[in-house]
Structures are given as C-alpha cells and as structure tokens.
Design a protein around this nucleic acid. Structure first.
Lengths: 336, 336
DNA sequence: GACCTTTCTGCACGTTTGTGCATGCTGGTT
DNA sequence: AACCAGCATGCACAAACGTGCAGAAAGGTC
C-alpha cells in the first residue's frame, strides 16, 4: 500500500532499489506497477537531477605517475582525464568536459560565489553539468563578451545560464565588451554603479572556473577568431611575447603580465585579483593549448587543473627535457 | 602509449571512463586492448573495492512521510528501506542488509573504533559490506558469543572478521560466553587483564552497530534458540516483562532494564554504557521485531535506525493508535 | 624442467538496459 | 465542446551487459 505516487518519490524509491539493493529494473517496475522503460527513465532522471551521485576516489598511492609529477611540480590538484591518443580534438574535448563537469559539481557548496569565464572549453563543460540543489549560490560572469561583430553575449550568457540552472543559482551577467577600444572608456565604465556591483561580486568569488587560450592553438580560441581583436591588437600581442590568456587577460610564457597593453582594455580580472580566489579550476583540452597552459601555471593562476592525458604527458615531457634536470632524475627513477 | 599496465591502473582508468565519461564497456575494452568481459569484471572490482562510490542523497523535503514522522518522534536519523510488502522475511532481510551496508560504509572514518554485535541481521549486513580503505580502525566485538552447545564463536567471529576485511581494520574478539551461568564468575572474569583490555576498547567505541532481538519474533533471534538460555532463564525473562534485547542485554517495552536478573550474567554492555557511544546504528528487518524495536527506541539506544518499510509503517501506526494523541493529530495533518 | 594449482582471459549465450515511435492523457485556449 | 501542444507511457527492437565455461598463463613445489 504505497502512500502517494508522486513522480519524485517513485524516482527516489527506484534509485534506492537499483543502486543500493541491486534490483533489476524489471523487478522495480513490477513493484512500482509500471513498465520497465519508465523505470529506466526514472533512473536516468535520478542521475541527472543529482539524486544519485557517483564518485571515484583515487587513493594517492594509486594515482597515475603523471598526476603525481604534475601535482608535485606545479603544486596544483590535478585530474588527468584518460583518453586514447588517437581521438580527435572534438572527442577529447567532449570527454574532458564531461569528466570536468562531474569533478566540479561535488566542489560546489551552498552560498558559493562561482566565477565563470567563457570559451569553447567552458561551453562544453556547461553542457555536461549535473544538477545539484544548493541555496544562496551565485554565478557571476568573469569577463565581458561583447565584440565588434556579433554580440557574443548570447554565447557567454548561455554558458552561465547553464551553470545557474544546474545549481539553482542566481546568475549575474557582465554586460560589457570583452575588450574596450580605449582604456579610458573602461576606466569610466568601471565607475558605473552597475559595473561596480559586478566587480564587487567578482571580488567575493570562492570558485573560479576557466579554460586557457593559447596563442598558437591550431583550433584557435574564440578570443583570437571571434572578432574581438583586430590585427593591430594581435601584432601587439606577438610583440609583447604573449603566450596565452585566461578570461581575456594575457600573460607570457613565464607567467608575467607587466607591460601587456591590451590588458588595460580587457574586461577580465587582473591576474593578481584572480590569484586571490580560493579555488581556481582550470580546464584544458587539447595539446595545442600547451603554451598558454604553461604560462598560466607559471603565473600560479590555477589551484586545480583538469586536463586530458595527452596534454598532460606533453606538459611533463617538454619541461623535463628543457629546464628541469631534477625532474629528469625523478622521472627515470619513477619509471614514467 | 599507455605507461604501465598494472591491473590497478586499468581498473581506475576503466572506472573513470565508464562512470565519468559515459563510455561503453566495448569502447573501454578497445582502448585497454582487452575484451569487454574483462572490462565488465574490472568495473565490478572497482565497485566492490570501494573505488567507485554511489551515494543517494535525499533532500529532506523529498523524504517519504514515514521517515519524517519517525525522525521527529524518536529523534533518530532514520533510513526506511523500500520493499514490497509481499516479500518474504528472507528477501526483506537481504534488501535491508544490503542497503544498510551501503549506508554504513560512508560513515566509517579512519581511526574509528567500531563496536559490532552479532545475530542474523548483523551477519547479513556483514556479507554485503563494500570495501573502504581506512587507517587505524579497530573492530571490537560487543558481547560474547560462547554458549553451552556449539561454540557460536565461529559465527560471531566470522561477522567481525568481514567487517575487518572490508575496512582494513584490526579486529578484537571477545572470547567469553554470551551469558555466564553465575554472575560471580562474570565479576571475576571482568577483573582479568585480557577482558579488561576489551572492555577498555569498548568504552572507546565511536560507532556501534547492532540489531535487536524481540521476545515474540516468529523467526526467533539466535539468542532465544541457539542454546544460550535454558528454560528457567526464559521463564525469568517473561516474568520480568522483557520486550527484547540489544547485544544480549535485555529491556522492557518502556526501555527500562532495572531488576532484570539475566543482565547481571550477560556479557553485553549495559544500556547506560551503550548510550554513551556517539553513533549507535540499529538495523532492523521484519515486522516481527517490532516489540523489541519499540523497547530499544524507548531506551534511547539508537541514534540511527535502518529498517524496512513494512516494519516502519507498523511502528508508526501502532503507536499513533495507542498512546500518542498528539501524533494522531500530526499524522492526519501531514496526510500520511 | 616437470608437474600441479591457482588465477586470468575471451567466447558464447542469455539477460538486462536504452530509446524511437505510436498512442493516450492532461491542461490550456478559443 | 473542440482543438492543440506538450508530456508521459508502453511496446518492440537493438545495444549493452554479466557470467559459466574452457583453455591459457602465471606461480609454486618437488
């Protein structure tokens, strides 16, 4: 004599029977007096409503060598996403972003303020987020997305909207261009009360999530192709020896950002203010981003790094060959 | 170029690809250059080695009415295990114990001291435990298991051994009879250093896990049938109005235990010392145990209660009909 | 090295699960 | 009342999965 038959309670019941009691969907269907197909659908609803949570905990002694090396060298909490190195860029992005989404969700608490950048990586991540009910959470856009051609705003707003839906959070867009034409305009805008409100929110971000742009990426980041920059700007970047960007703020190989003029006109948070955020999650997919990634790591922008195995391997090999004799030793020692 | 091919790393990799990236086993097999069957086996190894953890979090507002009522009335953290009310006792026990095992495991931390009783319920639970690596954990037997006929010790030791294996813990048996023939003997034994050591451990238990015995259970608890008690003892219990027991310590309907002579000869912890333990998990399966359960709840022996739905329903209905007009009101109010 | 025991692997088969599609239901609009 | 849009349901089929079994590999023991 089951009490009431709301869909919600059926879902919970099905989930318990399936995941906690190892019943087959068939058996559950009989008990719920419905069809097996419905149970299958209930269960997938339970999964992506966050009712069922699957976690994989990696005992440190079992983590792949690659993770240990990166963690030790860059002092970041790293998650290497296993991928076959025959996969094409798009499939890799898909896998990395899916795993990233599932890795990020457990980190989100109630009352978090989550700063989100935009770009193809973040867009992919946002598509795979699983729901989690939280209270008082806010999503805030880290950098503007307007450009000279299409607005770009729908693109960025779509990303943060998905984050908002997944966590039941309030979302705050940042309705300014990605880059101002004149630094003076930016300075004035930054005095506006509406902008100040967002800046204030940004200063209270507890979790930042971003990808990296790399100047040499074969699949170039949106920033470099989306009409945000003109050819003068790009020449300027190359002249300054820029390696990549995070949230439309640029830096060099060694992590420095002094004297990069374009940053004066960028709407993104300065590297210094980014570094003040407690948790800074960087998602990277594709070995073509390695240059930007190295710069970002040198700048200490990330506290956690989620990246695909191929890129991870390249990151370790490049550096160990070049500039890190000690690592070369460890490397052979650990039989990497 | 996968680095090394240990079984461990394959397991981790497979788990990540399956649970975090939604790959099929077939695809994983190709990448790992093995057969799909092997992957299937790797994944089930990952599950029951505790590498993959599946949790179901029940938002309070979604918990079934039954749970809310019990929680409020008895001030215990309750988990009602959904079961069809047509199931036979054995199947119910199987489901309850499986879900109990999976509910308990996440509560176990490193350095916990876990006190475990014995009985058919605990035996079933122990068979379904999933592995979890912890450090410095100790399992200690709460009450003796020797009796006048068979030793009973293998039975009890099997249970705590399973707990030990699951959590990688040290196990401490309690090699005394369940009941002494003479209270005097017990007093003397309690002075023995070997016994004192166990008693000291018991006083430091952080999580106790036990079932309940009920005097009217149709499937009688081991205690009442296993040759632990003779007919005089049983007459004595009935004369004292005993409702049931926890770890071979008896109590009445109302939770009182004063003047129950048999307890003087029992090897189990007194109700008072049991109540000092922080977490006290009580697992109950089968409506026939309801009398004992009510006594145990009245005595405040449990902080968490895991029981099947049928029993839960009966628990709520009986009491509300009899002795709890206020609850009758709440009950109709909440539309139970 | 020969022998035995134990564990691992892939195959083949039956079972279990996901999903496109047709149908039916519900609530809102005219 | 008639209509429609949107959603939930069950069916049927294909895909994905678990497992007994037999042979292969690994690890001891003499």
């Amino acid at each position: 004599m089951p009490a009431k038959r709301s869909k919600q309670s059926d879902t919970l019941r099905a989930a318990q029977m399936y995941y906690l009691q190892d019943q087959t969907m068939d058996a559950i269907a009989r008990e719920l007096r419905t069809s097996r197909s419905t149970v299958s659908r209930l269960l997938s609803a339970a999964r992506d409503s966050g009712l069922v949570q699957v976690q994989i905990k990696t005992p440190a002694d079992l983590a792949p060598e690659l993770e240990r090396v990166i963690r030790r060298r860059y002092k970041v909490d790293v998650h290497v996403v296993p991928v076959a190195d025959t996969l094409n860029e798009m499939d890799v992005l898909d896998r990395v972003s899916m795993q990233a989404a599932r890795t990020i969700t457990p980190l989100v608490d109630s009352n978090a303020v989550i700063g989100v950048a935009w770009g193809s990586t973040l867009s992919a991540v946002s598509r795979h987020l699983t729901r989690k009910t939280t209270h008082g959470t806010t999503i805030v856009q880290l950098n503007g997305a307007g450009n000279t051609q299409t607005s770009g705003i729908t693109y960025a707003s779509e990303i943060i909207r998905r984050f908002g839906t997944a966590y039941g959070a309030k979302v705050e867009q940042f309705p300014v261009p990605a880059f101002f034409d004149r630094a003076e305009t930016k300075r004035l805008m930054w005095e506006e009360r509406s902008v100040q409100r967002i800046l204030e929110l940004q200063s209270r971000v507890t979790i930042a999530i971003f990808g990296v742009g790399s100047i040499d990426a074969e699949v170039p980041s949106h920033v470099y192709t989306g009409g945000y920059l003109d050819s003068t700007d790009i020449d300027d970047l190359e002249a300054s020896g820029v390696a990549g960007d995070v949230a439309t703020v640029f830096f060099r190989d060694d992590g420095s950002d002094e004297g990069i003029m374009l940053n004066e006109r960028s709407s993104g948070p300065s590297l210094a203010s980014l570094r003040k955020i407690r948790r800074r999650i960087c998602v990277v997919s594709g070995a073509k981003k390695i240059k930007g990634l190295r710069g970002a790591l040198a700048a200490g922008l990330a506290t956690e790094l989620i990246l695909d195995e191929t890129t991870a391997r390249e990151l370790v090999e490049q550096e160990s060959a070049q500039s890190d004799p000690i690592f070369g030793f460890l490397n052979s020692l650990d039989g990497l």
